[in-house]
């Protein structure tokens, strides 16, 4: 039996560790809406307002139904860093503050994965969510600052 050399063993051990610790690197987060939603593009400023529920209605007057992902998902980490600019604990305080001021009645809806979010947004005409751009299916991807996921300068790229 051929005994693997030390370099090969080290490589076999380290690559999975590196991949796990860098799961978010190279991840583009797509902002998705229902295919019936006429919105095709939003600015970063408007996206921040929507995700913070400072803006709660679409341009046509329909109520925005915001759906987030659970704590710990790579997609949520990108959005916390790039849009909310706060950590998860601060975000929970933020939602509670908005409830205290009477701006919202409860925390936003939260689902466990990009698949769940895509499925929900695909069924609910006025919903908006965020998913791993490589997992988009059955929904419309919205441009942010004129760019789609994968394009140079896309604001919600993790790297």
């Amino acid at each position: 039996m051929k005994i693997p050399n030390r370099s090969a063993v080290l490589f076999a051990l380290l690559v999975p560790l590196a991949s796990a610790s860098n799961a978010a690197i190279g991840l583009d987060v797509a902002i998705i809406v229902n295919t019936a939603n006429p919105t095709t593009s939003i600015s970063s400023r408007e996206l921040e307002k929507i995700l913070k529920q400072d803006k709660q209605n679409w341009e046509d007057g329909k109520k925005i139904l915001l759906v987030l992902q659970e704590t710990g998902t790579a997609e949520k980490e990108v959005v916390l860093n790039k849009v909310y600019k706060m950590q998860e604990a601060e975000l929970k305080k933020f939602w509670l503050s908005k409830m205290f001021r009477g701006e919202i009645a409860s925390f936003p809806k939260t689902l466990s994965s990009s698949g769940s979010v895509s499925q929900f947004v695909g069924k609910v005409p006025n919903a908006i969510g965020f998913v791993d751009a490589s997992l988009v299916s059955g929904v419309k991807v919205v441009k942010v600052d004129g760019k789609l996921p994968g394009e140079a300068g896309y604001p919600l790229a993790s790297k």
């Binding site: 987030l68 659970e70 604990a89």
Partner: peptide, 10 residues
């Protein structure tokens, strides 16, 4: 517990 997350049902 650090608080609830799954809320907001219209």
């Amino acid at each position: 517990p650090e608080g609830d997350e799954a809320e907001a049902v219209t």
